[in-house]
Write a protein that binds this DNA or RNA. Structure first.
Lengths: 202, 202, 202, 202
DNA sequence: AATGAATGAGGGTTCATTCAT
DNA sequence: CATGAATGAACCCTCATTCAT
C-alpha cells in the first residue's frame, strides 16, 4: 500500500495485490494458489516464502484493510474546540467511503469473502464490524442521554445503521460512473439521522 | 417444509434440510457432498437420485426461499379500502422477519453463500435483492411525488434501507433469546422513516 | 431371433435386442445398464431377472451370434456327389455375409467390442475366429497336399485370409447403399484365391 | 522411445510407456488412471502435470504411433531410377511389420482400443486406416490402368488387403517365437498379389 | 413377475503444500 | 532467494448391483 521498505516488502506487496485481486474475483475458497501466483507472476514455491498459506495471505489483506479502516474512523469528540458532531460524522463517513470505494477488490472481499461463519478469518471480519457497530451503539446511547436521539433499541438500530452503510457500499461498487462521495455521505447520514419521511407529515 | 406428499418428496425434503444446514455452516464451496449425505444419513448415490449435483440442491433451496420471501412482500396498496401504508409496511416487514428468523440456516445461506459474484446462483440471489430494492425505490419516488418523502437519491437510499434490514437480520440470527418480532419491525421501520434524531432537535 | 416360445422368452429377446443395440453403439464398457433398460423400456430390477449382469447379456448375444455363424459355415465336401469346392466356398461366404451384413449391430459388437484381451468374453470371440481360421488353415493344408494350393505358411495365410474377410465386412457395414452380396463374395474369394495381379504378368 | 531430451521428457516418456502398457492390457475405458500411475510409479497429481487427462495420454500415444507408421509407408515410385514395385512393396510391409511387431502394446492398443465408434480418438485411428486403404486403392487403380492388376472392385479389395495385414499382425503379436519378418512380409505380399491357388490349376 | 429406490466402490480430476535443486 | 516438479488427500460424480415392496 505504502512505499515498500525493501525488496522483500516489494515482493510481499506484489503478492498481496495479486491475491486481493483474485480473492475479490473468485471468493476465498474458489481462489487457488495457482490463480494468485499466475497473477503475481511468481513461482509456486516463492509464494510460500512470503506467506504460510492461503489463509495467511487472506489474513494479511484483511488485517491491513481493517487497520486502515479503523484509522479512518475517529470517535466523535464533544467539547469546546471540537467540530460539531454532524460535521465529524460526515468526515468519518466520507473518509471511509473514499477508502472503500477506491479499492473495489478489497471491499468485494470484505463483504463477500464467502468464508463459513466459523472460520477464524471470518471472525476477524465480524469482529471489525462489531467494533464499528459498538461505536455507533455507544453514540446512540450517549445521544439518548443527551436527548438528541429518540428512544430506541440501540443495539438493533446500530446494526441497522451499519447495515445501511454496507448496503450502500455494496451498491456503489457496482457503479461505473464517478461518484460524488461527500454528497453520498450526506445522503446516508441524512437517511440514518432523519429517515426518509418529511418531518412535518409525521 | 410442510407435509410431504409422498415418500419421494420426503426424501427430497430430508436432503434439502441437510444440505441447507451444511451450506449454512460451511458456505457453498466449502460444503461437500460428503457433508450433506452424512447429515442426511443417506448413501452417496442416493443424493444423485434426487439432485443433479451440488448446484442443483443449492438452487432448489434458493428458489424455495426466494419464492417464499416474494410471497411475503405485498406491494403497499393506496386507496379507500386499504390499510394505512404504515400498517401495510409493518405487516410486510413482520412477515419477512417471521419467516427469516424462523430459519437461521436459510438466512445464513442467503446472506453468506460465498459464491463468486459471477456464478449464476449468486446472480439469482442478487436478482432477488435487486427486486426488493426496486420496490423500495419505487415507493420512495412515489412518496416524493406525494410530498410525503424528503427529496433524496432514491436509488442510494433504497439500497441503504434494504441494507439496514439485512444488517438487522444478520445481527438477530445470532441472538439466542426469543425475539419480539413486531417490536423489531417497528424499530426498523421507525429507523428507516424517521432516523434516529429527535425531530425537534434537528 | 426366432419365435419366442413364451412370454419369458419374449422379454429375454426384447432385452437382448436392446442390449445388442446399445453395445454396438457404445462398446461394452461404455454401455450402461441404464442405456439398456431405457432402450428395452423395462425397469432396472427386471433386467436382473433375466440376466445375471452385464457380462451375461453380452455373453448371450455373443453365443447366439457365434452359433448362428457356425451354422452357416459348412466344411467343404469333396466327393462325387458334392458341388465343386469353389461353389461351396462361395456359398459359405455368401451365407456368412448375408447374416453379418443383415445385422450391423451384431457385427459392430463382434468386431469392436472393446473388451480387454484377457476378458473371458473376449476369449470367446477369439475362440470363434480361431475356429474359423483353423478351418481355413486345414483347407489350405489339404489344398497343398492336392497341389491345388501354392506352398505357403498355412497358419499365417489363413489369418490373412480371415483378416481380409473381416476388413471387407468392417468396411461394408459403413456403407448405406444396398449391397450385391454374391458379387462381393465373388470378389473376396477371387482376391483370396488369385490375388490381384494379372496371372500372365507374374 | 529414443533418448529423452531432458528430465521432463523422461517423465513424459515414462508415463506414456506405462499408459501404453495399461491401455493395451485393459482397453481404453477399462484402464484407470490408478492403473497407469501405479505402473509408472508416480503420484496421482504427477500424472496431471504431464497430461490433461486420460484422453490426452491416449491421444499422444496414438499420434506418436500414427506418425511413426505414416513415416514407414513410402508411396511406391515408378520410374527409371526406382526399385521394382515389388521390392518397394516388400520394403514398406517389412518396415511396418518391424515397427509394429516390435511394440505389441502399441499394436494391441491400435487394433483393440475399445473406444466407441463415435469417439474423436477412435476416429483418429479410423482416419489412419482409411489413409492406408486409400493408398492401396490408388495403387490398385493404377495397376488396373497398367493392365498389371486384374479388374476388380478396388475399394472392396483394398479393404480386404488391409484387413489381411491386420489379420496377420493380430495373429503374430500373440506368438512368442522370434519372427522372420522379411519372410512374413513376403508371404503376405504373395497372398495379396497371387492368392493361394497354384496358377496352372486355375 | 415386476419395480425402482438405495447402495457404495470406484472413476477422473483438482489443488494446497512440500522440498530438492 | 527462487524455482517448479512432486505429492496425495479430498473432491464430485457414475453405475453395476441388490432388495423391499
Amino acid at each position: 500500500m505504502t512505499e515498500p521498505a525493501d525488496k522483500r516488502d516489494q515482493r510481499r506487496t506484489q503478492i498481496l495485490a495479486a491475491a486481493k485481486n483474485v480473492f475479490a474475483e473468485r471468493g476465498f475458497h474458489q481462489a487457488s494458489i495457482n490463480d494468485i501466483i499466475k497473477r503475481a507472476d511468481i513461482a509456486r514455491g516463492t509464494f510460500y516464502l512470503y506467506f504460510a498459506g492461503k489463509d495467511a495471505v487472506f489474513e494479511s489483506i484483511l488485517d491491513n484493510a481493517i487497520d486502515d479502516l479503523r484509522g479512518r474512523i475517529k470517535p466523535v469528540q464533544v467539547g469546546d474546540g471540537a467540530q460539531p458532531p454532524g460535521v465529524q460524522l460526515h468526515e468519518n463517513v466520507t473518509r471511509v467511503l473514499v477508502y472503500v470505494l477506491g479499492d473495489r477488490d478489497l471491499i468485494q472481499l470484505v463483504l463477500n469473502h464467502g468464508l463459513g461463519p466459523d472460520s477464524p478469518l471470518s471472525q476477524r471480519v465480524d469482529a471489525f464490524f462489531a467494533h464499528v457497530s459498538d461505536l455507533i451503539e455507544a453514540s446512540l446511547r450517549y445521544g439518548m442521554e443527551m436527548k438528541l436521539v429518540r428512544e430506541c433499541d440501540a443495539e438493533l438500530v446500530s446494526q441497522a445503521a451499519l447495515g445501511s452503510l454496507r448496503g450502500a457500499v455494496r451498491h456503489l461498487i457496482r457503479q461505473d460512473k464517478p461518484l460524488d462521495i461527500p454528497e453520498i455521505a450526506k445522503q446516508l447520514i441524512d437517511f440514518a439521522l432523519r429517515g426518509v419521511v418529511v418531518p412535518d407529515r409525521w
